[in-house]
Amino acid sequence: MRRPHRRSALLAAAILTATGATAGLGAGPAAAADCGALSYQSQAVLSGSTWTSTYGGSTVYSGTDMRAAVQAAVSALPASRTSKQNVLVRGSGSISANSRISLPSYTLIDVCGTINVTGTGSGDQAPIYSRGTHDVEVAHLTVSGAPLYGIFLRSVYNVILGQITMNLSSGLGIRIDNYGDTSVMSRNIRLDAANVSGASSHAVETYGVDGITIGTVTARNVGESGLLLNQTINATVGTVDAENAGTGTGYAAFRMANRNGRIGSSYATNVRVGTVKARGGGRGVFCVSESGGAVIDRVDIADTGNNSILVENCYNVTIAGVSGTVTGGGEVRISSRTEFAPSSDITFKNLTVTNTNIRWSPCTGTNNVVTNVTRVNSTLTWC
């Protein structure tokens, strides 16, 4: 087995230390090794135009179909296993948008190459798909083309996503939800780094997740949000870095919606974000629809086409816990719709706001505070 590159391992360890690890998952192979550096029980390897899949020295597939080769390598692992076994994919190829590679429980996949998604499809198809499973890991993955979803995970727990890169022409990058059984949240999820460009929807989206640690989401020219958390609790995010996310829309570099951060009927702080950086696009930060329980330590927002920051019907939200700058773009605003309780316990602090205004309107809600905010060519309209 090839030894991991020491510098890469140390860098990954530093990132993990800075962002924290989801309880029970540990550092994991994705955080510690370069692509192809683990030991593998099963492999799908491209030579010329032929994929050959092997398990235990036996060939389980030979042909030109990348999806069939990878699925054969995955399916060759013992169905009765009770710990992770590893699958190596070495080589690049294409699969249909109307197909998927399905990962069962106790499976790690390491894709050293690019999966290019072609054609059209419908439903929950994705080059990497897992539903109703646990102890699944995607150590490395690069996706191009036009998937419906790059990664689709439904009703899962104990999941690690390592180094994920998607250079897309449409689709949604990573979706993690609990729609298989909404009475039970997906849980214990870790995403080390997602770098997504060109998606027509969100770069990364969660819905119905309890316990997620995200290192970095880098979004470039995506149609909707960089990172969207819906009905997700106990979340820790290192950095959201978005350029032109949701241009011409109300989406944002970082968005919380649909009672995100609400535990029971309360909003104790349980969503913690290190940095949100936004350039252009729709909004910088958007909290909406009875979400809250969140602290964003640092913001760096400039030239958004919609609100730089909009907090609408949210509760117990602090921006910025440490420091932040907002330059140009739309207003920094607290707002409320009539169908929900008004925004309350919102704090804007430690900010320098330049060439855009700060406004609380309508004048509903309580304990909304502006403190230690420097305004440059900026008016303050407060209730």
Rank of each mutant, 00 (worst) to 15 (best):
N188E: 11
I263M: 10
T22E: 15
S200F: 07
N350L: 11
A242V: 10
S80T: 13
A33H: 11
I15N: 11
T354A: 14
T327H: 14
T17G: 08
E290M: 07
A9C: 10
S75H: 09
N313I: 05
Q43C: 06
K84M: 15
G26K: 13
T22N: 09
G36I: 02
A32D: 04
V70W: 04
L153C: 06
S186F: 09
V70T: 12
A242M: 01
G274N: 14
T54N: 12
G223V: 05
V276G: 04
T249V: 05
T133N: 14
S323V: 03
L11V: 14
Q41H: 12
A320M: 00
A242S: 08
V70D: 00
D124E: 15
G211D: 10
A320G: 08
G198N: 11
P4T: 13
I189H: 03
R7K: 13
A73I: 10
P127R: 02
A69R: 10
N195E: 13
N230P: 00
S291V: 00
R187P: 04
T318P: 08
I128A: 04
A73F: 05
P78Y: 08
A341H: 08
R6P: 02
N178V: 01
I160M: 11
V369G: 01
S8G: 09
Y315T: 08
T22G: 09
N355H: 13
T239C: 02
K277L: 11
A79W: 06
G293L: 04
S94E: 15
V196S: 01
T50E: 14
A68V: 09
T379F: 10
K277H: 05
T22K: 09
S344N: 11
A146N: 13
A193K: 07
G328D: 04
L228V: 01
S42E: 00
I334D: 00
D241G: 00
P362V: 04
L148N: 08
S266E: 14
G261T: 03
S266H: 13
K84L: 14
R90L: 11
A76D: 01
A37Y: 11
S266R: 10
N313L: 09
T22P: 02
T381A: 15
G292Q: 09
G292Y: 04
L10T: 15
T318C: 13
Q231V: 05
S265Y: 08
V237P: 01
V273S: 01
A33F: 15
T114C: 04
P147Y: 03
N230S: 12
